[in-house]
Design a protein around this nucleic acid. Structure first.
Lengths: 147, 147
DNA sequence: ATACGTGCAAATACTTTGCAGGCTT
DNA sequence: AAGCCTGCAAAGTATTTGCACGTAT
């Protein structure tokens, strides 16, 4: 299922080759990001990080995320006025679907996605950098639960 | 060009019929939203509002936007860690393209959009509510300017 | 020794909320 | 008179920054 079993190594390598130091804190954040497909937010990452390194601070999480984002090793997902979510497993922009009830973000595979990118590139004179597609609704579990 | 010359009246009517009072402040916010296709943020709306009603407060803008959003009379666009943008002219979700340099949001017409919605609805068991598609890049003007 | 990184706390940015006074009906 | 609305200010949330100390090379 895991499309990329070496995200941990990849991210470590990229950090290092970009001139950043591989500290225990950064490695721990990378480890968390490389294993989680549930698009955690900084708070969640921080709470997981604290278990590994009890004295860390949220600032370290934010700083590490900023670096990884700049290196395109993590995808930042903005949604509503909530805190950002991060995807270190699949760092390239890809479609997401979000459940308004359980607040879960999931990946979505779309056959049309490739064609869509084509049409976008053809139909504007913009220099396209990224395409963000996100869908919101109610997931099957939440639909069937009595609310 | 303007697809909907009566947005002002429509929004006023919707407010009223939903049990909200049509105050001068709200009408002024609606007026601004109904005339602007440039997706203003609350600060921009507030600065325009102040010209019409010098004593208003940002809170009034936020409160009015919250109502209009709930009534689906305004579309809220989230982007990056910037303040939200609002579209009162076309309140249904539609694709946007954003220039990273001049920070302009523009609407984008896509032939595939209908098909995309179809595929999304067919390919998941979610109850779909909204589809947000936003593209980021550099607009033609900014591309040609010397930086 | 030097430069980089951490972690605390303060600062910032944006938005929401509480509440007293005012206006409308 | 009652209730909604405004506008101020305070609070809240998410994130960033400044800085002194620590650590690795």
């Amino acid at each position: 299922m895991n499309e990329n079993p070496n995200r941990f190594q990849q991210m470590c390598k990229k950090l290092k080759s970009s001139g950043y130091k591989l500290t225990p804190q950064r490695m721990a954040v990378i480890k968390i990001l490389s294993e989680r497909t549930d698009h955690p937010n900084p708070e969640k990452i921080y709470s997981l990080l604290k278990k590994l390194l009890p004295t860390t601070s949220p600032a370290t999480v934010y700083k590490t995320l900023a670096i990884l984002k700049k290196l395109d090793e993590v995808l930042e997902i903005q949604y509503s006025n909530q805190s950002n979510r991060y995807d270190g497993v699949k760092p390239a922009p890809h479609p997401h679907i979000y459940c308004k009830k359980c607040k879960k973000f999931s990946d979505l595979e779309l056959l049309l996605h490739g064609q869509l990118i084509e049409e976008i590139k053809d139909s504007t004179d913009y220099e396209i950098e990224s395409i963000y597609l996100s869908i919101e609704g109610i997931c099957p579990d939440c639909k069937s639960s009595v609310s």
